[in-house]
Design a protein around this nucleic acid. Structure first.
Lengths: 116, 116
DNA sequence: GCGGATCGTTACGCAAGCGTTTCTTTTGCC
DNA sequence: GGCAAAAGAAACGCTTGCGTAACGATCCGC
């Protein structure tokens, strides 16, 4: 069941969600960081630095830094892969799940409030 | 007609749009910048620095800098208010409208592609 | 076990954003 | 006219993110 949106609905939704998020959250993740976070939580694991870099079309240090930042915020965690110790597997956290749950609620709320 | 979304649809939509936007656009606006841009184009003018700052709950320099950045990208323009020359009115540009139009299309496309 | 390949991190110099504070210009009131 | 108030920009020091390049650790075929 796809989501059918008019142009005005699409941008209106993005507008109110961005606005609400800016007002509510001091953390101010970048678009890249948010994309990474969502990818980690919505796509089945395992996730690696290399895989994320390829998925986003960015370099590996970008992923490392984003994981540093979001790790410090408690939104994600890292652990060495025991089967191939060169790899790092990215792990979800309770706090990260909570963060995205709240964010999802915000989207749903703002969606309901969209006129037209 | 509000937009009714399930949690999985809401986050899924945000995920695919963020991902597509990161891959497509090198400009990488911050969430704040995007919120400002959308506000300028979706809410009836006039827009002032002070008004935007109050709307977003941020300080005035944040708005000034965002306008600097997006002005350099051609997404917005500034002009003195002739009726009160202390004010600056923020003006839309063709390129900015185009940018948001493409962004809206991207949201609609990704919405259609959402499963479930 | 050795050498090349792979993975993630770190180092470097640089650009951009932040909050606070300080102008500069303009207004409006006395 | 004179002066406090208001709007926006600029200055300051700091933090964070960027891309490129170099680096250690680990794997794997031989």
């Amino acid at each position: 069941m796809p989501i059918e949106l008019t142009p005005s609905q699409a941008l209106g939704l993005w507008h109110s969600v961005s606005l609400a998020q800016v007002r509510v959250d001091s953390r101010d993740l970048t678009l890249r960081q948010l994309a990474i976070l969502l990818h980690i939580y919505l796509v089945p694991p395992p996730h690696t630095v290399r895989g994320l870099a390829a998925t986003l079309g960015v370099t590996k240090p970008v992923i490392t830094r984003a994981l540093d930042t979001m790790g410090a915020l408690g939104l994600v965690d890292r652990a060495r892969d025991d089967r191939d110790r060169r790899n790092v597997v990215i792990k979800r956290t309770v706090e990260g799940a909570l963060y995205l749950e709240k964010f999802g609620d915000l989207i749903i709320d703002q969606g309901r409030k969209q006129p037209k």
